[in-house]
Amino acid sequence: MYESDHTKFIKSLKEQNPALEAGQQQGRALLWDKAPASLEEIARAKESAIKQQAYVYQTKL
């Protein structure tokens, strides 16, 4: 069965450093996996949002 050079490299990297995948999962959990927000938090965030002007880069004189 054919394996590309990239696949072989990733496999050898994981064999050399078995904790690599666990570290990747921890990093993902830290940055991307968020706890679900309650309905009260969502409503409060919508109410407190500041409306953005139509053209962002134009300064008001």
Results as ranks from 00 to 15, higher is better:
K11A: 05
K8P: 00
G27Y: 14
V56S: 06
E41G: 06
I10Y: 14
Y57H: 03
T59Y: 10
S12R: 03
P18W: 10
I50F: 08
E47T: 04
A35G: 07
G27Q: 14
S4F: 04
P18L: 04
R44L: 13
L20Y: 15
F9Y: 07
H6D: 15
E40P: 00
G27F: 15
T7S: 05
A54M: 12
A35E: 11
L39F: 13
T7V: 15
M1Q: 11
E21M: 10
T59C: 09
L20P: 04
Q58P: 00
K8D: 01
T59N: 13
G23I: 02
I10L: 15
L13H: 01
W32A: 06
L61H: 08
S38D: 02
K34E: 10
K46Y: 04
Q52Y: 04
L61W: 13
D33W: 03
F9D: 15
I50P: 00
P18S: 07
Q24C: 11
T7E: 15
Q25P: 05
K60Y: 02
E15W: 02
P36V: 11
E21D: 10
A49G: 06
E47V: 04
L30C: 06
T59H: 10
E15R: 02
Y57A: 00
L30R: 07
L30P: 01
L30W: 14
A49S: 10
Y55P: 00
A49F: 12
A49H: 12
I10S: 10
G23C: 10
A45S: 09
E21Y: 09
E21K: 11
I42G: 01
I50E: 05
D5H: 09
A29N: 08
Q25L: 13
K51G: 01
M1V: 12
Q16V: 07
E41D: 09
L61F: 14
P18A: 06
R28Y: 15
K14S: 09
Q24A: 12
E40N: 06
E41T: 01
A22V: 04
L20S: 08
V56N: 03
Y2W: 04
K51D: 00
K14H: 11
G23R: 03
Q53K: 15
S48T: 10
R44G: 01
Q25D: 11
H6K: 13
M1K: 10
E47D: 08
Q53N: 14
S4V: 03
S12C: 08
